[in-house]
Simulated scan of single mutants.
Amino acid sequence: MDAPQDFLKDAAIFNLTDKRLSGPEPDCRRKRYRTIWVSDIHLGTKGCNSELLIDFLDSVDSETMYLVGDIIDGWRMKKKFYWPPEHNDVIWRVLKRARRGTRIVYIPGNHDEMFRQFTGLNFGKVEIRRKAIHETADGRRLLVLHGDEFDAIMLSHRWLAHLGDMAYTAMMVLNRWVNGIRGWLGRPYWSLSKHAKHRVKNAVEFISKFEEIVAEEAGRRGVDGVVCGHIHTAEIRTIEGVEYYNDGDWVEGCTALVEHFDGRMEILHWADEIAARDTDERRMPAAA
C-alpha cells in the first residue's frame, strides 16, 4: 500500500455511483442530534465492531457528523489486507448521509494518516480537515482533532507505538473470543480490554495525563473545549476551566459523543443502548 489511491482502488470502498448511496430519507423514528462525533473505528481490522456501528448509524441522524480519526486502519492493512462486506456497509452509510445533506467532516488520525495529504479537499461531499472548530448551539467553541499530536509515545518513539499496537491487537483477538462466548450464552457485549485498562495503574495515569495535556493546549488556543479520540476512552470532564470531550471508539467501548439541539453534550454507550432496547422489546406485550 504505497499510496492512498492504491488503497482506495484495491478496497473499492468509495464507489459514489453505487445504488446503495441513493434511497429513502431516514426513518422518522431515528434519534436526531445536532452533532455526532465518532472516531477510532479501525475499519480493515477484525477488532472493528462494525455490527454495532451499523446499528448505531441506522438509529441516529444529525445535521453534522465528525469522523475524528482512525476510521480506516492503514497500519494494520499494510501488513494484511482485511475488508469484509460489513466495512463497506459502514462507508456506504456515511457517504449516503453526505449525499442527503449531512455535513461530514473527516479528520484523519495516525492510523489513517495517508489521508492527511488531502487536507483541505472535499471527497464525495466529505470535508477532509486536519482539525476543526465547532460552535455548539449554546455558543461554545470546541477544537476538534484526533489527539495523536499530544501522544508523547507517538511523537518520540514511533517504533514503541507500533509495538503497543501489536500488543493491543492481541488483546482484541482475546476480546473477540470472550464476546463470542458471551454471545453464545445470551450475554451482552463487554469490553475485556476496556476493563483491563481501567485496572492497570500506568494506563490510568497515561489517560489522565493525556487528557490534561489536550485540555491545556485547547486553553492556550482560546477555545472553550476540545473534542478528540485516539486513546479509546470516552470521557466528559472539565480540566482547569476547559471542557474535555473524548468520543471513545468502536473497537472496545463502542461509544459516540453527541450534541443535543440545546447544546447539551452526551456520550452514548451503544452496547448499553442495544441492551436497553432489547429489554424494552421483551417487556412489550405480544400483539393480539
Rank of each mutant, 00 (worst) to 15 (best):
P4W: 09
P4G: 09
Q5F: 14
A11R: 05
N15F: 09
N15R: 10
T17A: 13
T17F: 05
D18I: 04
D18E: 11
R20E: 13
C28L: 04
K31V: 03
R32Y: 10
T35D: 04
T35Q: 08
C48A: 15
I54C: 08
I54A: 05
L57T: 03
D58R: 02
D58L: 01
D58M: 00
D61V: 04
M65S: 02
V68F: 02
G69Q: 03
D70Q: 02
I71V: 11
D73N: 06
W75A: 09
M77W: 07
K78W: 02
Y82H: 11
Y82W: 13
P84N: 03
P84I: 01
I91H: 04
V94H: 12
R99F: 10
T102E: 08
I104D: 11
V105A: 06
I107D: 03
G109R: 07
G109H: 11
G109K: 08
N110W: 00
D112V: 04
E113F: 13
G120H: 04
F123Q: 07
K125N: 13
V126Q: 13
R129T: 13
K131T: 09
H134T: 08
H134W: 09
E135I: 10
T136A: 08
G139N: 05
R140P: 06
F150V: 01
I153V: 14
M154W: 15
R158E: 14
A161N: 12
H162C: 10
G164Y: 07
D165M: 01
M172W: 14
R176S: 15
W177H: 15
G183I: 01
G183Q: 07
L185E: 03
L185C: 10
H195K: 11
A196S: 11
R199V: 07
R199E: 12
V200K: 12
K201D: 12
N202V: 09
V204W: 11
V204F: 11
I207R: 12
I207V: 14
K209I: 07
F210N: 02
I213T: 15
I213K: 14
A218S: 04
G219L: 00
G219H: 06
G222P: 11
D224K: 07
V226S: 04
V227C: 13
C228H: 04
H230T: 07
I231R: 00
I231S: 02
T233R: 07
A234Q: 03
E235C: 04
Y245S: 08
G248R: 09
D249S: 05
W250L: 05
V251G: 10
V251W: 05
L257I: 06
M265Y: 01
I267F: 03
I267H: 02
L268F: 09
